[in-house]
Design a protein around this nucleic acid. Structure first.
Length: 741
DNA sequence: CACGAGACTTAGGATTGAGTAC
DNA sequence: GTACTCAATCCTAAGTCTCGTG
């Protein structure tokens, strides 16, 4: 864990002394060149003025408003009767022509201390925990506070047995998180995230291991021994040689610029052209190392595994309010090259090694402060119980904060997750009203309200993300709903939604934009006439790079939503629509008479609908075609078998006949299954089911489904899922009622 | 009251490792 | 046993949304 020897100090080490001297030429190059793949239409990096987002065009909509498909003044009557909620309808009369956005920002009241008052409970708990903390280390608080009225639903059965037998056995359990059935407890008042917190701090990246002497870097064909700092960074680049990154100008330019900062003066003089750098020996060496690792004996592998477990025991657990909880990312991110996605302007920049001096520790006031590695100290130690993180540092490339937080199985995450789904369920209750409302608002005389309504329609119907503004130099050009631009939208009075469609639909809007992670969102949808007219109106007279919703941003949209329901934000719609889709599809697709395999298929189908809705994509795997080929072959073979069986059946007589029939049916069934799995595989080619399962689908729907149809939960939930959703498993399984989202 | 910092959730790709085929 | 394959897990980037502040 010692970090001392790292050449990549980010502090004031000598290596740092050189800054960006003389690299201006390089910088300029980046700007001028198009640095991303040309095959991606939106990949072009036309520099946009950072500001142009902020002052959205203030246009005068006097004229435009008139040409909606009906006079707008009529609308005003309607809108005012709509409901009282929406503040001053009258004053907005003259609002007709949009003025610069006026925001009623002050949604300030915050839900802060508004809620419960379960203090006594917490107090009690706290005092208990305080004592816990003195020695943080192993101790048997296992069944603390007698909160287990029933045997825990622990994952390991052996555990339960042991528990009864003897307390000594607890030893084994000390390394693991304990089962905290927080959902049976009262909630803490808002704002306070914990009362006591202790942990062992982060685990730092292994120190740099220099290359052996026979592995050489070459410049311009000649061997060149690099300084330690330069060598380490050279290794990072060697690691990316097989990757597409190494072909991108932005990556290479950024890399070169940063690398040169860490070179010795001599190196910097000499190494000026990346194309003359030869990392191949390093690359080979790294690959060899990987092979060696793979080829290790069982014993060696076991040893490594045990070492890892050892680290996990120390750094992987935090004690929070007296409960042992898993930590998520206790390993500090090792140094490397920044792998920004899409056309990220900073890709290839150096991510420096993080030292204890960069790290802020957050822990309980009375808990033992984790020890920094010898010879080091923390940047800061604080005791902030309004946040959930244990450690934080500032990442160097984008200057953002990074955190070490608890595992999703922890109370602190689980409770939040539970709340998320409860909020989505509250939305379910009022979604009808909200839809009525935004449908009315399509006719509002106020441009910003119309835009808001149409945006909300898209968000609701298509599960789009909110689309916050982004800083052009700090991130790839991607958009969400509110930041859609004219160039991302096409309208068709009539069009086919898909290539193969027979019929054309009316009022089709086509979306084609890079979303989160630069994943393409492409979709054609038939929309309501009034939406269509509005979209055309919003597009009118604008340049391709202008905002579609020039009177709208996420803040005002969320503010509006909050007025409709506490806790309602844009992303709740995604959660709601994902979960309700799963529930509906499961009802539609599950056949109780099916066997387990078929039910699982139905589940995956339902899951897939959600993934498609949310546009969760994955890259087609390299082996996909080969795997498909194999499957096709299998199908062919099976078809032959079926045919043979069919022949046999024809010629069979008497008892033989029955047998032949059976065989034929069986083969036929197998063929059907193979075909299904082919369809399944094909449909899943580019669809990622995992993201929705982990983040959007109320786990109780799945658990209820498994319970109802006798599907073992582990067929649809991995161990990680079951840990994360322990609350949901318990809730559904201990209830007599069927869970309905 | 806009704006940036901060905190937390969501995301796809890379890596690992368990299961299966050979 | 070894090789291969794919699902599970790890990693960390990239979103969302809130809050404090000048």
């Amino acid at each position: 864990m010692s970090v001392v020897s790292s050449p990549l100090k980010n502090g004031n080490g000598a290596a740092m002394a050189f800054d960006s001297n003389g690299n201006d030429d390089i910088k300029r190059e980046v700007k001028e060149e198009t640095m991303s793949d040309d095959d991606v239409p939106w990949g072009e990096l036309v520099k946009r003025d950072k500001k142009d987002k902020k002052n959205k065009q203030k246009r005068n909509y006097n004229d435009e408003d008139g040409d909606g498909d009906e006079p707008v003044k009529k609308v005003s009557k309607k809108s005012s009767k709509l409901n009282g909620k929406r503040g001053s309808d009258d004053e907005s009369e003259d609002d007709y022509k949009p003025k610069s956005k006026k925001k009623t920002s002050s949604g300030k009241k915050r839900a802060r201390g508004s809620s419960s008052d379960e203090e006594e409970d917490d107090d009690e708990q706290m005092s208990e925990e305080l004592s816990d903390e003195e020695d943080f280390k192993p101790q048997k608080r296992k069944s603390k506070s007698g909160d287990k009225s029933k045997p825990s639903t622990s994952s390991s059965a052996k555990k339960e047995v042991k528990k009864e037998v003897t307390k000594k056995k607890v030893k084994k359990e000390e390394d693991v998180e304990d089962i905290w059935e927080w959902w049976k407890e009262d909630k803490k008042p808002d704002g306070v995230k914990w009362n006591t917190l202790s942990h062992m701090g982060p685990l730092f990246a292994a120190p740099y291991l220099p290359l052996p002497d026979h592995v050489n870097f070459k410049y311009n064909g000649e061997v060149m021994k690099l300084s330690l700092a330069a060598e380490e960074i050279a290794q990072f680049y060697a690691g990316v040689l097989d990757h597409e990154y190494s072909t991108k100008d932005a990556f290479n330019t950024n890399f070169m610029k940063d690398w040169r900062k860490y070179m010795s003066t001599k190196e910097r003089e000499r190494i000026v052209d990346l194309r003359k750098c030869d990392f191949r020996q390093i690359d080979t060496f790294q690959k060899e190392q990987r092979e060696i690792r793979k080829a290790m004996t069982k014993e060696e592998k076991l040893k490594i595994k045990e070492e890892k477990e050892g680290e996990m025991k120390i750094y992987g657990i935090a004690v929070i309010d007296g409960h042992r909880q898993k930590v998520a990312n206790f390993r500090i991110e090792p140094p490397g090259l920044f792998r920004g996605r899409g056309g990220h302007p900073k890709m290839g920049m150096l991510k420096k090694r993080i030292l204890p001096e960069d790290v802020i520790i957050n822990c309980g006031k009375s808990s033992e402060i984790p020890k920094p590695p010898p010879g080091h100290r923390w940047k800061e130690v604080r005791h902030d119980n309004t946040v959930t993180w244990l450690c934080s540092w500032t990442e160097g490339v984008l200057g953002q904060n990074k955190y070490i937080m608890l595992n999703p199985s922890s109370k602190i995450k689980g409770e939040k997750d539970y709340e998320k789904y409860e909020t989505a369920r509250r939305l379910k209750k009022i979604i009808g009203g909200i839809r009525d409302r935004y449908t009315e608002d399509f006719r509002s005389k106020e441009m910003r309200i119309r835009q808001r309504a149409v945006a909300l329609y898209f968000i609701d119907k298509l599960a789009l993300r909110a689309g916050n503004e982004k800083d052009v130099d700090e991130a790839a050009d991607t958009v969400g709903c509110c930041s859609l631009r004219v160039e991302h939208i096409k309208t068709f009075e009539k069009a086919k939604l898909n290539e193969g469609d027979k019929k054309e639909k009316e009022f089709v809007v086509e979306f084609d934009f890079p979303g989160k992670d630069s994943i393409r969102y492409y979709n054609r949808v038939a929309v309501e006439k009034r939406v269509f007219k509005n979209v055309k109106l919003f597009l009118e007279g604008k340049a391709p790079r202008d905002d579609l919703f020039d009177r709208l941003d996420t803040a005002s949209l969320n503010e509006h939503l909050r007025s409709l329901m506490p806790g309602l934000t844009v992303k709740v719609f995604r959660t709601y629509n994902a979960s309700i889709t799963l529930q509906d599809q499961l009802i539609k697709l599950t056949n109780p008479k099916d066997n387990v395999a078929a039910k699982i298929l139905a589940y995956n189908r339902a899951n897939r609908q959600v993934a498609i809705l949310c546009n969760h994509q994955r890259a087609v795997s390299k082996t996909f075609d080969a795997a498909m080929e194999k499957l096709e072959q299998k199908i062919k073979d099976k078809k032959k078998e079926v045919k043979a069986a069919e022949e046999a059946l024809k010629s069979a007589r008497g008892a033989e006949k029955e047998k032949a029939q059976k065989k034929y049916d069986r083969l036929k069934e197998q063929l059907k299954k193979l075909k299904i799995s082919r369809t399944d595989k094909d449909e899943n080619k580019q669809v990622a089911l995992g993201t929705s399962k982990l983040n959007y689908l109320d786990p109780r729907i799945t658990i209820q489904w498994a319970k109802k149809y006798d599907v073992p939960l582990e067929k649809v939930f991995t161990k990680t899922h079951r840990e994360k959703f322990r609350w949901a498993i318990d809730m559904v399984n201990t209830s007599d009622e069927e869970y309905v989202f």
